[in-house]
Design a protein around this nucleic acid. Structure first.
Length: 108
DNA sequence: CTGTTGACGCTCT
DNA sequence: TAGAGCGCCAACA
């Protein structure tokens, strides 16, 4: 029995999945959550708890339908959009990933 | 134990 | 197509 909490265990899974996202591809919290048997909320909480260096492509994780949560537009969102563009992923002015259906990636 | 909050998702209008 | 509201679940004070 690991001293780690369920949150830490889930965190490891999420990090593993997110770290496996290929370049130029994106996924959503719901997709990861369902694949790991967790809710999008839990995945989101894990992402919010990530530290600098914990995940190298956290920015490849977006909300449902490729929508970027406006909650993090304060500072993180800007950095996420910039990172996505750097990966070749276009983002519309509505904070949505362009051609999300084309870049949509499923963990597996 | 109770109340509040949230890097979300789905449905209705 | 766009916007607003409600629900689910877990962490935190």
């Amino acid at each position: 029995m690991p001293t780690s909490t369920a949150f830490d265990r889930l965190k490891a899974k999420v990090l593993a999945v997110v770290a496996a996202i290929p370049e130029g591809r994106v996924t959503t919290y719901g997709t990861i959550g369902r694949h790991l048997g967790a809710t999008a909320r839990q995945v989101a909480r894990v992402m919010s708890s990530l530290e600098v260096g914990e995940c190298e492509n956290w920015f490849r994780v977006v909300g449902a339908n490729g929508v970027i949560s406006t909650t993090k537009l304060g500072s993180v969102g800007r950095r996420q959009i910039a990172s996505l563009k750097a990966d070749g992923i276009a983002v519309t002015a509505r904070n949505r990933v362009e051609a999300f259906h084309a870049v949509g990636w499923s963990p597996g």
